[in-house]
């Protein structure tokens, strides 16, 4: 039986890695992957708490998050491809069109 704090610590590290990736990496694909990391950290937490409080609802939520993440990656990658086609680059800091 794995102890709960250990799992939470793991998910916190994973989330922090994701946050770092989203904020610091320039490559769009890597940003998307980092978001995946953050989502999965949340999943880990959901499953862990589900086990801890004996409630199946948390695991159901985790499944929802996985489905949403898949959709999100689908759209995200499509955007990245379109950006690449237009600009020959997938560096997110070069895509700053949406400003005043």
């Amino acid at each position: 039986m794995i102890r709960l704090p250990l799992v939470l610590f793991f998910s916190a590290v994973l989330f922090s890695t994701g946050v770092y990736g989203v904020l610091a990496r320039r490559n769009g694909v890597l940003v998307l992957m980092s978001i995946e990391l953050m989502l999965n950290a949340v999943n880990v937490n959901l499953v862990a708490f589900s086990q801890y409080v004996r409630d199946i609802g948390g695991q159901v939520f985790a499944l929802f998050v996985i489905a949403v993440a898949a959709a999100e990656v689908g759209i995200g990658l499509a955007i990245v491809i379109l950006i690449f086609r237009n600009r020959e680059s997938i560096n997110v800091d070069e895509v700053s069109l949406l400003k005043w």
Partner: peptide
């Protein structure tokens, strides 16, 4: 206020965070 609007997604994300 428009100076905040840089267009950089990561900057927005950082602010969000």
């Amino acid at each position: 206020l428009r100076a905040l609007q840089t267009g950089n997604v990561q900057w927005y994300a950082a602010l969000l965070f």
